[in-house]
Structures are given as C-alpha cells and as structure tokens.
Simulated scan of single mutants.
Amino acid sequence: MPDSLFTRGLLGLAGLAGLSVGAGIVFAPVAFHATSGIHIGSDVNLANEMRAAGGPILAGSLFILAGAVRHRLIRPALALATLLYLSYGAARLVSMAVDGSPGQALVLVAMLECVIGAACGLALLAHRGSPARKDV
C-alpha cells in the first residue's frame, strides 16, 4: 500500500478536519468553542490561549494536506497526523478519567480523534517498509 488512494484520502480527511478546527480556533475561537458548549465569554487571556493552541493545529494540518498530494511527504504527514490526533484523543481520555465525562459533542470528538489517529498510525506502519519514490 505504498501510495494508495486510501492513504491519500486518509491524509486529505485528516488534513481538512484539522484545517477546519485550527482555522476555527484561530479566527473565531468564541464561536468555534460555543458549538461544543464551551463559553469563552470576554476573557481576553482565555481567547488568546485558545487562538495560540489553534496555530499548531492549523500549521500541522497544512503539512498533512501536503502529504496527500506529494509522495515524498506521505510518511512524515502520516507520522504527524498520528501524533496530532492520538495525542489529542489520549489527552481527552485522561481528562474524562480525571475530570469526568464532558458533553456528548466532546466525547464524539475524542472518539473521532482516536479513530483518525489509529488509522493514520496503521497506514504509517504499512508505509514503513515501502521504497521511496520520486514525485511525479
């Protein structure tokens, strides 16, 4: 499965999902978080912290999308997607264990992050032994 349509589609999905989340957090954090029942209000410090967290998601997602179109970036993009999605999913699971269960929307987000991260991790393992190829 070195250069499969599935892998490129997975990277496209992971990249677009992250891009929408990152852009929402950076450019409209109050409205974005309100969709999950989180109210930032007029706390400038909290809004600043939220926007700052969105930047790496946005940048990483652009790289993941690049991996969907450039063969030489597939492996690093899969590695980044695996790290990004599984770290968010794992952190949410820790929070659920320590803080209790959040709203249904955030539980669904945690499940999606874990599924996307695991799928990217499995695709990365499948690409580990594949020979390198020049972009066409």
Rank of each mutant, 00 (worst) to 15 (best):
V69Q: 12
R70Q: 07
L73C: 14
A81P: 00
P102W: 02
A66V: 15
A77P: 15
V98W: 07
H71C: 11
I64M: 01
Q104E: 12
S61T: 06
R75F: 12
T82Y: 09
L80Y: 03
A97W: 10
D99Q: 08
L78N: 14
V98D: 08
A97R: 12
S95I: 12
L65M: 01
S61E: 02
G100I: 04
F63V: 04
I64K: 02
V69T: 13
R70E: 07
M96Y: 10
V94Q: 12
L86R: 03
H71A: 12
R92P: 00
S95W: 03
G89P: 04
I74W: 08
R70T: 07
L73H: 10
A97E: 10
L86W: 02
S61D: 05
S87D: 07
S61Q: 06
A77G: 14
I64T: 03
T82W: 13
I74Y: 06
A77K: 12
A68F: 06
L62D: 09
L86I: 05
G103M: 10
S101D: 11
L93K: 07
S95V: 08
L86Y: 04
R75N: 12
A91F: 13
Q104D: 06
L80S: 03
A77R: 13
A90E: 07
S61Y: 05
A81W: 00
L78E: 13
G100Q: 03
V94N: 13
R75T: 11
M96L: 12
H71N: 15
L83M: 09
L84W: 05
L65R: 00
L80K: 01
A79I: 01
A81Y: 00
A68W: 05
P76H: 12
L73M: 14
G89W: 02
R72S: 14
Y88P: 00
M96S: 05
R70A: 09
L62C: 10
L73F: 15
A91I: 10
S101C: 09
S95N: 15
V98E: 08
L78Y: 14
L73Y: 12
L62Y: 10
Q104F: 08
L62V: 11
R70S: 09
S101V: 09
A79W: 00
R75E: 10
A79C: 07
